[in-house]
Design a binder for these strands. Structure first.
Lengths: 234, 234, 234, 234
DNA sequence: AATGAATGAGTCTTCATTCAT
DNA sequence: TATGAATGAAGACTCATTCAT
């Protein structure tokens, strides 16, 4: 079978898996179901991905790649705009990505947590060897840095063009933003359930969050005013 | 058997579960093992917790309760200090909690994500009914607000005593901090693995993160200078 | 505790068991539930009946005893009526018993089947020894004959008083009736479900069944005409 | 795998189950044992039958089908004989079937009882939904009528050819016979254990039973004399 | 490449029964 | 007698993975 067709099959399987993992969770989705949804036999699934875990790693890789693309496109499409405006677009695009591709976002987060464990000398051994030895794992260990790299570039650009405060340090600043974005994704769905006890409303909070983010960055030139969001963020 | 002893048993089981879930993960820990580690028969485990899921919910409840205590103690023990200093202690105590009680922290985060799903009308049905109908679940739905509540109180206090910027709005400000802390926990372990590609170092980053947090809050009075951390944060 | 109280407890347990076995079946009723329903501790249940099986045997014994009483009362209360009329009453009373005390009837039938196995030299060993060694089992082996005995007496009486055909042999005749009654109980509930395919209607069938039974017996004297039943038999 | 082989496997599993259920009872037979006896893995058993209950329903279906065949063959093979003689053969064949295929006979009886419960509006809910929703259950609800249908046909034929009393009504007459046969199967094994108390002997009883059955039916023409059985019926 | 039947170790869960108090 | 916590063997069922075709 041609390489083309091969890729098509892999894609089909992954799409099926992403859909089902998203609906029922990794653990509650059976390989049988993935295969059926991909209109493929179960055996063939194992020809392309040698285990369920590896399929999930493949999805994780896709997550990093897609997000990297989001970052790259944001950077490139905004090449005529200020770094501040790039960040503005980046935040928006990331939040859209996390919302629309929940599984990919979750896979990324899972991987980051796993790397945390992996970096911990004592805890490392709690990760099964099959995982660590997978090609995907190795690739992911490098891939994970591409995303912050681009983020840092954007901030640097903003500092150069004066749209971002000159006293900020690009690396830590991006990680700060990154931290906030990841935290936001973790928290925002749970806010506002029966809002009796706390006087915080989702819409208010979203705006405050974004406003803060941009006030933090805003330099003296070329930084457009932040536009409050009406209604739901997405 | 006395209520006391009964609670002791429950505690024993939960401690065993927390230890093992922490080492091998929820999914890879068998109820058999939990029972054995708690020096108890498997059947008794099911006498106290009617399923593995419910045991995990019980742990989640413990997580919220313990964290609430951390918040309360921080507030009360610092009653003679400024709100800013209270926040300072709170951040420190939370990070210590998250680090030392990984499973509890993770359980809390898992629950927050679940609430996100639960709040989503279409996705809600993807959560098994046994879970939603559990007493623990109901209790947790309320419990989750206690923590931000205390946080908001501290910020309010800081605003009143001038140690925190007066222009800040307590609710959104606390959630901002809360977001950053949760994001930090997600990310920090993964930073700095083979630092070749990015010029960010864990220690630098930790300090930058904390410094930023406190600069954000600092008012004009009673706010002590933030002290950089040497070496590992914990 | 007095013997009186002891019997009261046993009775309570058995009543609980009978109710629950009737509703959910022997197999789906837990000893826990029986104890709870009897407002007694589980342990005490085992003080009175040394196993679930034995509890069921006790119920079986009760079944034979109660049915024996039904037979005896029918015989004694009808001492001034003809044997034919006694049989008429007996049939009616038995059917009422079977309908109202489903569990007792079923227990009796189960025991008869078990005796069938027990009488079969090769199959006997498939019955657990605990069962066969139980006092209840021994008692039941004798008890089972009391019922046909009374039946035979009634038929003999009818033959003597001319209300039942003189050419009939009492033993075989009673067993014939007995067979029909047991078969009827097995079948009648299932008749008439969506009566499209077979032109048999429950009411018609009931009457035909009873009519036949009594035509079979009817002698020349003292036998009242059989009265057709309107509506449900019970 | 071919449909043929698939059926072969199903058959193998069912045969194993029938054998073991017959020896140790449904409840005391483990799926593990069924699988082992069928020289198959446990998982495969669940591939073909999605639960133990369903396997038993499949056996029940087989019971009705086999018995239907017995009825059909009896009818067809005796097409040149009188209806009375057909009934004679039918009774004999049914008794042989019940004796040789105890499990199938029991499964049929169990189903009839269940239908009784199912037809009872209040009791219906005591039957688990999985059962009622099974395809087997639906099929069985229809299948159960095929057997009496054939029986009725035979009686009708006998009435037409004068070998069975003309005044009998075919439907009720067949159900009468059917009742007696089912009752007989329930009772006959238990008769004659320690024959001290009752003067009934198995052989005597068997003959009396059969004799009665045929006297009941016998018309004026073409009905051969009933031949007493010597020794055991089977 | 492709199929889907086959495997079987793995797991949760149940519940009759026991026993310390 | 009475309790109900404690036991643990048993058992149904799952599902990732393999393999003959």
């Amino acid at each position: 079978m041609s390489a083309y067709s091969r890729q098509q099959k892999e894609k089909k399987i992954m799409e099926a898996a992403i859909k089902l993992f998203g609906e029922k969770g990794l653990h509650h989705t059976k390989m049988d179901e993935v295969a059926k949804f991909a209109r493929i036999s179960k055996g063939l699934t194992y020809f392309y991905f040698k285990s369920k875990e590896e399929l999930y790693l493949a999805i994780t890789k896709k997550a990093f790649e897609e997000l990297k693309e989001v970052f790259q496109h944001t950077f490139q499409n905004g090449r005529d705009e200020s770094g501040f405006d790039n960040m503005n677009a980046l935040v928006k695009n990331f939040l859209a990505f996390a919302e629309e591709k929940k599984v990919l976002h979750q896979a990324m987060v899972d991987f980051l947590r796993m790397v945390g464990t992996y970096n911990h000398p004592e805890r490392r051994k709690s990760i099964p060897e099959e995982l660590t030895k997978s090609t995907y794992f190795r690739k992911l260990l490098n891939l994970q840095y591409d995303i912050p790299s681009i983020g840092v570039s954007i901030i640097s650009k903003g500092i150069r063009d004066g749209s971002i405060r000159p006293e900020l340090q690009p690396e830590t600043t991006f990680y700060l933003i990154w931290t906030m974005l990841l935290g936001y994704e973790q928290l925002h769905g749970s806010i506002n359930y029966e809002p009796k006890s706390l006087k915080i409303h989702e819409e208010v909070w979203n705006n405050a969050f974004l406003k803060f983010l941009f006030e933090l960055l805003k330099g003296t030139q070329n930084a457009h005013k932040f536009q409050p969001v009406q209604g739901k963020l997405f």
